[in-house]
Amino acid sequence: MSTSIGVWVAALLTLAMFSFLYRENPVYRVAEHILVGVASGYTVLLMYYRVFIPVVWNGIAHPKGVESFFWTFLFTVLALLFLAPFVPRIGWLARIPAAIAVGYAAGQELIAAVQARLFPQLLDTVTAFDGASGAPAVIDALLIVVGTLSVVFYFTMTFRRTPVLNGVARVGVVFLMIGFGAVFGNMVISRFTLLIGRIEFLFGDWIHLIPS
């Protein structure tokens, strides 16, 4: 067995978490609350060392110029408005930095939706037959075009569906089921890896039952 205190602590905490698989119990709840506390502390330290000191503190105490100081000061004041909800009368001020962040993200996502999603993906769909030589490649290209359009159509609720359009939506459902099956198949290897990692740790690093 391992002689490292750290490995023992990690192993016991892991087993405490796994005790939930039998039923919820105080040992599991202790481990859960330790995780909450440590995760919160981690986040605070990360933001303090990696954002607050290099960006805020250095931007105000050691600015590159007047303009730089102005912008850093302005955004710091706006960011402090996130704390406004703790004073009920001025709680609404927290909406100001939130609105700026939402507007920024919306503007950037609007451009990205057209530049990085719509155009390249539509282009790749309509050029699917380019360079397709031989029956299998042509069939693949046809499946891609039919699949893409029927799935987009399946999610479109703007107009009334006639029997023909219902048929198209049905084709979309067939493709969706295949797609979800593929997602599930890949999810299995992903989830199993997480458990294999814990088993390798418990039975390898801790108990030394698994050869390294």
């Binding site: 954002v51 607050f52 960006v55 850093t72 955004f75 710091t76 706006l78 960011a79 402090l80 700026i100």
Partner: peptide, 10 residues
């Protein structure tokens, strides 16, 4: 830079 400050203070 402003967004970095916002996300940290959030």
């Amino acid at each position: 830079n402003g967004l970095f400050i916002f996300m940290a203070f959030a």
